[in-house]
Structures are given as structure tokens and as C-alpha cells.
Simulated scan of single mutants.
Amino acid sequence: MSKAMASDYDEVRPDVKESQESSLEALRTENIPDARSVVRELEEADTVDGVNLPGDYIAEELIVEVVPQKEDEFLCSSCFLVQHRSQLAQEKDAHAYCIECEG
């Protein structure tokens, strides 16, 4: 009976280790920008001076007419939409829920 040598399963295999080292060396030799230059580029990109946004800018005020809730309507406590009473599914603890939210 021959004795087998104990294997260290946590040790990296030689072929994998060589591949990792060559990959690491390739990353080191690449022309990778440093963190300061990346931050500088991002800050320059954030400035809006001289940037023309697509489309026309219209300086008009939006006017919306607010209609108060009617007696035959309720506010759903889940989706927060004003619904007609025919859409009421459940009222619980002074909260009303519509069919869509309870369905």
C-alpha cells in the first residue's frame, strides 16, 4: 500500500496562479487613469455652462384646475387615487381600498 501525499485544497493550483499573475501584470501595464483624473473629468462633465439641451425651452406656467372630491368618491389608501364608490372593495380602520388594490 503506497502512501498518498496530503493535498492542501486551499492552495492555488500552479496553472491558475500563473494565469492570475499574468492577468495582474497586464492590468498594471495598461494605461489606466488614476482616481484624481477620473474625478476631474466627472466634475467637468457636470458643469452645464454652454450645454444646449435638446428640444425647445418653453417658459410657460402650467395651470391645473383642482376639483374637490365629490360625495360619491373616496381616496384609496393604497394607490392614493380618487375612485368612484362603485370601485370600493373594503373599508378598514377608516381606510378605504379600491378593487384594483384589493383584487
Rank of each mutant, 00 (worst) to 15 (best):
E73K: 02
D8S: 08
R28F: 03
E18P: 00
I99T: 15
E18F: 11
P68D: 07
H95L: 13
Q69G: 02
K92R: 10
E25D: 15
D72C: 04
I58S: 07
K3H: 05
E65Q: 15
I32N: 03
E60W: 06
E71A: 15
E91G: 06
G55I: 04
E91K: 04
Q20G: 07
V39W: 02
S2C: 00
E61Y: 00
G55H: 02
L27C: 04
D46I: 11
H84K: 10
S78Q: 01
S23V: 10
A89W: 04
L81K: 06
V51E: 13
E100Q: 02
L42Y: 05
Q69H: 06
E18D: 14
E11Y: 06
E30Y: 09
D93K: 13
D15E: 14
V82L: 07
E11D: 05
V39T: 09
R13W: 08
E71Q: 14
V64W: 02
G103Y: 03
E73T: 05
P54Y: 12
P14D: 06
E41H: 04
D46N: 13
E60G: 06
K3T: 12
R40D: 09
A96M: 10
S78G: 01
Y97G: 01
L75T: 08
V82A: 03
E30Q: 14
R40F: 12
F80N: 14
A59M: 10
Y9W: 13
A35E: 03
L62P: 04
D56M: 10
L27I: 08
L24A: 14
R13N: 11
V51R: 03
A4Y: 05
D56G: 10
C101R: 09
S77M: 09
E18L: 09
P68W: 05
T47E: 07
D49R: 12
